[in-house]
Design a protein around this nucleic acid. Structure first.
Length: 300
DNA sequence: CGATTCCCCTGATAGC
DNA sequence: TGCTATCAGGGGAATC
């Protein structure tokens, strides 16, 4: 499931690969993925737009598009295509043959993995390449609108600060935690509190900080808060440098998995020895999600 | 306000 | 072998 490091990896790749490209058409087979606009309108509106840059906010990919046509308009010339990959979404850059609607068996070479066999949306670029959204569970969503519309949408306005933003200080973090009675694991995963952290990195951060996932956020000691804050910066930074985690089926725009998978110390390591004390990692349910932690190192 | 449950979707896995 | 039940999980909605 793509979280901050995975989404940022996608964004970095897209910035290297598709900036300056013009979208000449679109294809889709799952209309429900397209929000706000009717799918046919989406097709019409996105055609002819040129990619000017790609950014990330929380777990959202923001593809900035500009209208390069000479037709003048009072409306904003800058549009944004917001993509949320949810759990199994992938943004891939390559070439497929969707006209034959045989997208489930056309991927060859380095993309020859089943994870790429569920393409539901394709943006055709003017150089022959395509940006494809594959998504096994069809939970992903894309939303096209003007820069103003998208920036004002709840997807971007109702989420908390960026954990890797240097302006996001320890005092900011401690302030947010002090007003939260919920379990620290749930608070870290709550996009409205902090943006971009999900199940993988909340487990990794709390393991690193030696804090029990069930501890109420406002009950953390000052020392624990500092540990969590530091771990948050360190874990996310390292995972980003390693191009993300692929315990599930995350893939970059080439279809390649991330490298953090092999250095993770808590997430989906149930029964395996803790990296500090060798105690088997435990797995427990919390709010419908699973938490992994060391019962010896991470005390309540 | 917070906690819980359901829903969306489909491959993997366990049980029979 | 093959069928069926269960589960995972981001996020939003509904309910308690």
């Amino acid at each position: 499931m793509p979280e901050l490091p995975e989404v940022q990896t996608i964004v970095n790749d897209l910035n290297k690969k598709i900036v300056g490209c013009r979208i000449v058409g679109a294809w889709f087979d799952t209309p429900k993925i397209i929000k706000k606009l009717k799918p046919e309108e989406f097709k019409k509106h996105i055609k002819g737009l040129e990619v000017s840059g790609v950014k990330r906010r929380g777990k959202n990919v923001l593809i900035y598009l500009s209208n390069v046509s000479r037709i003048k308009s009072n409306k904003s010339r800058i549009k944004i295509l917001l993509v949320h990959q949810k759990m199994t979404g992938h943004l891939l850059v390559g070439k497929w043959n969707a006209r034959k609607r045989q997208v489930k068996s056309l991927i060859k070479g380095p993309l020859n993995e089943k994870v790429n066999n569920y393409i539901h949306l394709i943006l055709y670029l003017d150089d022959g390449r395509q940006v494809a959204l594959s998504d096994l569970r069809k939970f992903a969503k894309v939303m096209l609108g003007t820069k103003e519309e998208i920036e004002a949408s709840p997807d971007l306005t109702r989420i908390g600060p960026e954990p890797l933003d240097r302006k996001f200080s320890f005092n900011d973090f401690a302030g947010l935690m002090s007003s939260q009675k919920r379990k620290i694991k749930q608070v870290l995963m709550d996009q409205k509190v902090i943006a971009g952290i999900g199940n993988i990195y909340s487990d990794e951060i709390l393991w690193q900080a030696k804090v029990h996932p069930f501890k109420p956020a406002n009950k953390l000691s000052d020392r624990e808060l500092k540990e969590v804050f530091l771990a948050m910066k360190n874990v996310l930074g390292k995972a980003l440098r390693m191009r993300g985690t692929s315990t599930s089926d995350f893939r970059d725009t080439e279809g390649k998995p991330g490298n953090y998978t092999r250095v993770r110390l808590a997430y989906q390591r149930e029964g395996e020895p803790c990296g500090r004390c060798q105690t088997p990692i435990k797995r427990v349910k919390i709010g419908g999600r699973s938490a992994h932690y060391c019962p010896k190192c991470q005390k309540l």
